[in-house]
């Protein structure tokens, strides 16, 4: 049985990171979201066999990690933990696609290996960009930004409720699982599972009703209002413009090869 207490703690850790303070954290949520989006599209639009041209894009996650004072090791571990599905699908490429597409010296490189390497690089880039976006912005500001951009309020509000009450219900679940574990059972049979999860569900339903009661007793009328709104400034605009220019440059010409050629010419 594994209620990853790990998972529960991980959410808390990301939550903490997003509450730190750094110039990166202070940027507007929409600016960071938009930049991330452009980055993702740039990465994903590369051809299937592209490897070297993806390299320059690592500047983005590395620079942001440093700039936002984020723990690189922690993020790296999270990227590695998320890898299974991409690995699972990508690992077949070297076996299925054996056409030689390139030569390193006299050694043939098959398309499969190229595309596999490409999948892994894309994966590292996209996942780290997503994690960094969250770690330097936080779910609340992301949601507020998304709402300002027109995401339906109902969706945003219930997502924030989900997040808030994950810390309550997740802990309840963790406690229940621990108490079962403490009674010596190492794996959760279907019966125990059913009643444990069933009780958790009933308690969740009851809690939702109490929360609703608490809301209406403070004048809730179907609309959740929040004070304060981020106003983007020139720094935010510069952030988006600067990085987007870099992404486009990296997408249009293979910077790696450019750099490689320059180095070889000098040598």
């Amino acid at each position: 049985m594994s209620m990853g207490p790990g998972n529960y703690i991980e959410v808390g850790r990301m939550d903490e990171l997003s509450r730190m303070d750094s110039p990166l954290h202070r940027l507007d949520a929409r600016a960071k979201g938009l930049t991330t989006l452009i980055f993702l599209i740039a990465v994903m639009s590369f051809g299937r066999y592209e490897v070297s041209a993806l390299m320059p894009l690592f500047v983005y996650p590395f620079a942001l990690t440093a700039w936002g004072n984020l723990p690189a090791g922690f993020l790296l571990r999270k990227v590695a933990l998320a890898a299974p599905f991409a690995l699972f699908v990508g690992i077949f490429n070297p076996f299925l696609d054996r056409e030689t597409l390139s030569w390193i010296g006299s050694h043939p490189v098959s398309g499969g290996w190229l595309s596999f390497a490409s999948i892994l690089l894309r994966f590292a880039l996209t996942v780290s960009a997503g994690l960094i976006l969250l770690a330097c912005t936080g779910i609340h500001r992301l949601c507020a930004g998304a709402a300002q951009l027109g995401l339906p309020r109902v969706f945003v509000v219930q997502l924030l409720f989900l997040y808030r009450y994950f810390f309550v219900i997740g802990e309840e679940g963790l406690r229940m699982v621990r108490s079962v574990e403490m009674r010596g059972s190492r794996s959760l049979g279907l019966r125990t599972y059913g009643s444990l999860i069933g009780h958790l569900l009933l308690r969740s339903i009851d809690r939702a009703q109490r929360i609703y009661r608490a809301m209406i007793s403070r004048g809730f009328d179907g609309e959740v209002r929040v004070l304060r709104a981020d106003a983007p400034g020139w720094k935010d605009a510069a952030f988006v413009a600067g990085w987007s220019a870099f992404f486009i440059a990296a997408r249009v010409c293979n910077l790696s090869e450019l750099v490689g050629n320059v180095v070889f010419n000098i040598l």
Binding site: R164, Y165, I211, R225, V226, L227
Partner: peptide, 15 residues
């Protein structure tokens, strides 16, 4: 139920 202590305290008055 809100994101921060302040938002929670402001919830009623805002409504």
């Amino acid at each position: 139920f809100m994101a921060s202590v302040f938002d929670d305290v402001a919830f009623g008055p805002l409504n």
